[in-house]
């Protein structure tokens, strides 16, 4: 018997030096695991954060992005709603985003300061011009959710 040469050939980009094009087209099936609850929450217009359930733990504030376990004492955390109004801690307008960015170049990125939260969530500003200290409120992409962090955005409050 004789086996045929392969049908699939690599495109030659250049002869000298020899450059060939390796196509990559497959998908990763990614699990958010315990953080999935946060993304479910966005579809219900809720920002779900977590806090440590251990009464002896020194960190009483909320984690957002949520953590399923407390990094200070390794105890389990509990889900709780975070405030939907906060202030812009810092911002940038990304002019040359990388491949895969689902929003247009020129979208303002922001970090949001929320009362009672120990972190400054990175997000984006859907309307208006960003400024440090500017009050903002959360808006949610519930119609055609992307199931990513982009389903949460902020507008001037």
């Amino acid at each position: 018997m004789s086996i045929d040469w392969p049908n699939t050939v690599l495109e030659v980009v250049e002869r000298k030096p020899l450059l060939v094009k390796n196509p990559k087209t497959w998908s990763h099936i990614h699990s958010y695991g315990g953080w999935g609850r946060f993304f479910d929450g966005l579809r219900e217009r809720k920002i779900l954060a977590t806090h440590c359930k251990n009464p002896a733990c020194g960190e009483k504030r909320l984690w957002l992005p949520p953590r399923c376990e407390c990094p200070d004492c390794w105890h389990e955390t509990a889900w709780v709603e975070a405030p939907q109004r906060g202030k812009i801690y810092t911002w940038s307008v990304v002019k040359y985003p990388g491949e895969l960015f689902k929003l247009p170049a020129g979208t303002p990125l922001i970090s949001v300061e929320l009362e009672g939260v120990c972190t400054k969530l990175m997000s984006w500003l859907k309307e208006g011009k960003p400024e440090i200290g500017m009050p903002v409120r959360a808006v949610f992409n519930t119609e055609r959710p992307t199931h990513t962090i982009l389903d949460l955005a902020w507008v001037p409050a």
């Binding site: 990304v94 990388g98 895969l100 960015f101 990125l109 990175m122 997000s123 984006w124 962090i149």
Partner: peptide, 9 residues
């Protein structure tokens, strides 16, 4: 999960 999507940059 929470940041790369914001710009991929």
């Amino acid at each position: 999960d929470f940041e790369s999507e914001l710009g991929w940059m």
